[in-house]
Every structure is written in C-alpha cells, then in structure tokens.
C-alpha cells in the first residue's frame, strides 16, 4: 500500500457521503468516502493510502480530467515483469509504486528520470491512520 502524509484542508458531507480535501507537498488531494467514522477535522494530520494497482500514469498531460488527484512524479526505477511493470516513483519525499501493464509502459516509453503524473481517483484514496488531530 502506498502511503502519503497529508493534512485535512476541507470536509464536505451530505447524507453520509463525504468529500475530504487534503494538502500534501502543496498539492491538493481529494477523497470520496461513505460516512466518516475516523475522527478527523480540518488541520488533522493523516496517513493516506492507495493501492499500487490504483495509480495510473500519464505523460504530457493535457486536457481536463475528472480524476481529482494528480501528482507530479519522477520515475526512480522499474521492476519489469512479463505482463506487468512495477514503476517506482518519487513524489517529493514520498516514494510511490504504480502497477501498470507492460504494454502501456512500453507504449509510453517510460524510462528512469521521466516526469509523469500519477492519477488517483478520489474513490481509491483512503485514510489509513489519523496521526494528529487538527
């Protein structure tokens, strides 16, 4: 599980559905959630989690995407499998891993040092732990 330390910047809730916004390394992240039984408030420091298979990669991003979370990353290394590639990314101080198909990786011409954007849908992001209250 990839983890990111972030601070809660906004909480919007209606009928038990919540959108929580976070800030990490000056980037805004958003999480869609059903109910919020973790005791968070604006200012809380949390550990966010996202599965490696839920991170998509994009190069030369243009156009408008519905995906809330877009992290500017640099490719640090690869583990190349026969069908899948594990791409190790650096997002500032955080290390992330993305699992993509080999064919996508080859098509994108991914190589070490490339700048890519990691895309995470807000429904794929979760709070793993509340580190400090706001």
């Amino acid at each position: 599980m990839n983890t990111l330390e972030a601070k809660v910047s906004k909480i919007e809730s209606i009928d038990g559905v919540s959108i929580v916004s976070f800030v990490t390394l000056d980037v805004e992240l958003r999480m869609m959630s059903l109910g919020l039984n973790t005791p968070i408030e604006v200012g809380s420091e949390v550990l966010l989690g996202v599965k490696a298979s839920s991170i998509a990669l994009v190069k030369n991003l243009h156009g408008i995407l519905s995906i809330s979370n877009q992290l500017q990353c640099r490719i640090d290394s690869f583990e190349e499998g026969s069908l899948l590639w594990s791409v190790k990314l650096l997002f500032g101080e955080f290390r992330l891993e993305s699992i993509v198909t080999k064919s996508s990786a080859v098509k994108m011409g991914l190589k070490r040092g490339d700048e890519v954007v990691a895309l995470i849908k807000s429904s794929e992001l979760s709070i793993l732990e509340v580190k400090a209250k706001g």
Partner: peptide, 9 residues
C-alpha cells in the same frame, strides 16, 4: 458491527 479501518468500510 461495522468493522472499519480508517475510511475503509
């Protein structure tokens, strides 16, 4: 009864 881990329902 609802066993949760953080925001995971």
């Amino acid at each position: 009864l609802l066993k949760t881990k953080g925001s995971q329902k």
